[in-house]
């Protein structure tokens, strides 16, 4: 019994560590914008998937189930990051709680964002990078669920139903996250200009 469970676990691990893990890494990276954190989220999701293999009724649904766990891990990281930022903001000499992130990871994030940007014609490159940088910083100000919904919808072409499933919410709630996220992002960009 224990041996068959261990076999099933190692089979699932080798199955998920391939293409699903790469896809999960793509989502995690787009959400977290940090290579180390994205890899950590994928590793944690793999470990959790293997540990709760008993919950998986349909083996064909494993990749989708795994991506849901990756998304949950990313949401957790985003919430923790937001909390850390808020706590740092309340400390004396750290500025307002809602101010732009001043964590140690910021230089690395910017470097990675610049590295990861799609190639543009040289003339428009600087302006485009500036706009994209502003967009990333505005995305940071959205709630973790709004940000995840927007990234999954427009960055990874997931349907609203899939997003609801990955966030673990009702369809109507996922729609609300999308609409409010877009509206808030527009307002933030208008304030910026």
């Amino acid at each position: 019994m224990a041996a068959s469970r261990a076999d099933a676990r190692s089979r699932l691990l080798s199955e998920l560590a391939g293409s699903p893990a790469r896809k999960g890494y793509g989502i995690a990276y787009d959400l977290l914008r940090n290579r180390a954190e994205a890899e950590e989220a994928v590793q944690e999701a793999l470990a959790r998937a293997c540990e709760s293999i008993g919950d998986l009724r349909d083996p064909d649904a494993a990749p989708g189930w795994f991506l849901r766990i990756v998304t949950t891990m990313c949401l957790r990281t985003l919430r923790r990051r937001r909390l850390k930022r808020a706590l740092l903001g309340w400390l004396p000499g750290q500025g307002e709680p809602d101010a732009a992130p001043k964590t140690e990871q910021q230089p690395e994030d910017i470097a990675e964002r610049m590295h990861a940007m799609p190639s543009e014609p040289p003339r428009e490159e600087l302006a485009s990078r500036e706009e994209l940088g502003a967009l990333f910083s505005h995305l940071d100000q959205l709630s973790a669920q709004q940000r995840t919904a927007l990234v999954l919808r427009y960055g990874h072409d997931h349907s609203v139903g899939e997003i609801a499933d990955m966030l673990g919410v009702e369809l109507a709630t996922a729609k609300t996250h999308l609409v409010r996220g877009l509206a808030k992002l527009r307002d933030l960009m208008e304030e910026h200009r």
């Binding site: 691990l13 560590a17 787009d30 590793q43 990861a116 799609p118 994209l132 927007l150 919808r153 960055g155």
Partner: peptide, 21 residues
């Protein structure tokens, strides 16, 4: 927002790294 998506290469040995981790 579509432009924020980046095709990041996780690097060589990604699957092995993930499995070991």
């Amino acid at each position: 927002l579509g432009a924020t998506h980046s095709e990041t290469d996780p690097g060589i040995g990604f699957a092995a790294r993930m499995t070991a981790g």
